[in-house]
Amino acid sequence: MTVYILCFVLFLVGLYGVITRRNLIKIAISLSIMEFSIFLILVLIGYIDNGLAPIVDPGSSAQIYVDPLPQAMALTAIVIGLATTAMLMAIAIRLYRKYKTFDIREIRNLRG
């Protein structure tokens, strides 16, 4: 149970970062922290005590394997996370070129 709570704490750390940080890059990092806390939860969901890596070896007898599906989900989500982070970085760098700063307090044209 502790591990799940720790994952949730990690999620909250990311959320705190997104809400309070003023630097574009730090916001992106906080979003990544949130993402990875959820990947951890996904992998934990598939975990079975004493389970082996889910590689079917023809030679070995039947054993307990961990659930491979959440791992596949986590992998796919990592790919998506890569694309999102790359997009965020590209936009952040362009914003930096326009404003010469990463501070969101100075980047505020739009009202709400």
Binding site: L82, A86, M89, A90, I93, R94, Y96, R97
Partner: peptide, 16 residues
């Protein structure tokens, strides 16, 4: 794809 992303960011930095 990863190389393209990396190179685009590097080119952008060099140009600015």
């Amino acid at each position: 794809a990863i190389l393209t992303i990396f190179l685009s960011l590097v080119i952008f930095k060099e140009e600015s």
